[in-house]
Design a protein around this nucleic acid. Structure first.
Lengths: 258, 258
DNA sequence: CGACAACTTGACGGGCGTCAACCGGAGTGG
DNA sequence: CCACTCCGGTTGACGCCCGTCAAGTTGTCG
């Protein structure tokens, strides 16, 4: 079994009798990344898949496991993490609905990290062989998937910079900015209020800090009038100042298609 | 012109009259990553390319530049870096001969980081359109290149962990271990002496530390009998202890093919 | 021999970690 | 309906790892 604590109640092995509309978030994302033709879209809709609703903290990918199904995050949030030898955890990215959470393992057969859900989520499982086959015969699709993994890599690079060269205040502000940008694919002038799906401990794991210091730094950001906060509900009060504190330039997200 | 301070003396626009043997390091690398058939190899050998010998610190990719040629590192070393808003530099990876230094920009048209040589190097320039075309028509090649960028991404993830969750001693030891492993594709039981191509300031930029602290930490590693050092010449004295201090597990390099 | 880059060393300070206690809301069970 | 538990968040005291600043040393190149 490729995942451990997942609830299995929505098992649906049928090859998408409903026309594959469940995979719409994937199509939506791929269309933002690269142009697909009608043929490609039809092929993706026909992919056999299994939809599953899972709870908070469910492992979608587990380190050292060998992979035969790719996981697609249809709804909810997830994060990707590694654990150091002495047990410290580092979150290396997070993901929102539509993201292909596990593209690495089309080519790398053994997982080198974990992916877990943040809160309740809905995922789709697709056999690697299906995607591999499709990629081999459809250059458009192959390009889109490749491009997606290149964007992921670009985000990892920005995280190395974030964790390596920015202070706590900037790191956390940067994380918030990235979350805001990825959540609202089309950003208006000023972001609305939002609910952070992660705990302060997870923010700490993503920024290379401790939960205690994250807490204090969030309070500073609030005291300085950049954000307002009630538990995990956030309101951005000064978007320009937050971006500036974060040293945030969304270019690394490569969101404008092409 | 796609690079700035490069010496142009070896300009050679001819489509590889010599049978493309100059690109052997690329073939060697791709063969380690994935199986190519004779046809693929012949196609790569026929790629028009321009060989260039460049000096220390030459920019192979420059942030914000738009890219029309991909850069292949034939001989020497290079590093990839980003710069934060207040001017701090973070090195996010380094590369050895054979690496395709700039695969990102087949799909992402605008560079989000810099790549510079470490010491003198020899590079090959290949038009993106050539590679893009080849990838579109050759599934094997497409897979190999994709796989290569997935491995790069895996290395970035490990670097996020390294910089985010390990102390100075482990970070530097980890950098040394990775360098040793990537340098000698086939590692014997104990690594031989080697010359580090980077300055202590560059080690600092790669580990998120300051040059001063890198210096002190290197001295600690030596005092503890893990390494011996004379300027940039290194000898590993206790390989097991160094790997242990580094918390180094080469799995993330995905070097064993498949 | 002078200039320069890289490396080295020491003194000092601060950002962030550590430890530990406490609070508050949500779920649970009696 | 209320005790109990648990997780996540909050606060304070204290200390260390690592940054900062600044001076000095070494090797290299012209």
């Amino acid at each position: 079994m490729s995942q451990q604590s997942a609830k299995q109640e929505e098992f649906r092995p049928s090859p998408a009798k409903n026309g594959g509309e469940a995979l719409s978030p994937l199509l939506c994302k791929l269309n933002r990344i690269a142009r697909l033709n009608d043929d490609d879209v039809a092929a993706i809709r026909a992919w056999p898949h299994r939809i599953e609703a899972v709870g908070n903290g469910t492992y979608l990918v587990r380190e050292r496991a060998s992979i035969d199904h790719c996981c697609l995050l249809l709804d909810g949030y997830a994060f990707r993490s590694k654990v150091s030898g002495d047990g410290a955890r580092q979150i290396v990215s997070f993901h929102v609905g539509g993201d292909i959470v596990d593209l690495q393992h089309l080519e790398l057969s053994r997982a080198d990290h974990n992916v877990q859900t943040l809160g309740d989520a809905v995922v789709a499982w697709i056999a690697v062989e299906v995607i591999r086959q499709a990629a081999a015969t459809r250059p458009n699709l192959s390009r889109a998937l490749w491009r997606d993994s290149l964007i992921d890599a670009s985000i990892f690079r920005e995280w190395v910079l974030n964790v390596g060269r920015r202070d706590a205040r900037s790191r956390i502000a940067h994380l918030l900015c990235e979350f805001i940008f990825r959540r609202e694919a089309a950003m208006s002038a000023h972001p609305g209020p939002f609910e952070l799906p992660m705990t302060q401990e997870q923010i700490a794991d993503a920024t290379g800090l401790t939960p205690v210091h994250v807490n204090r730094t969030l309070q500073h950001l609030q005291a300085d009038g950049l954000i307002h906060r009630d538990r995990r509900s956030f309101v951005v009060r000064d978007w320009a100042a937050l971006r500036s504190a974060a040293d945030f330039d969304p270019a690394y997200l490569h969101m404008a298609s092409q």
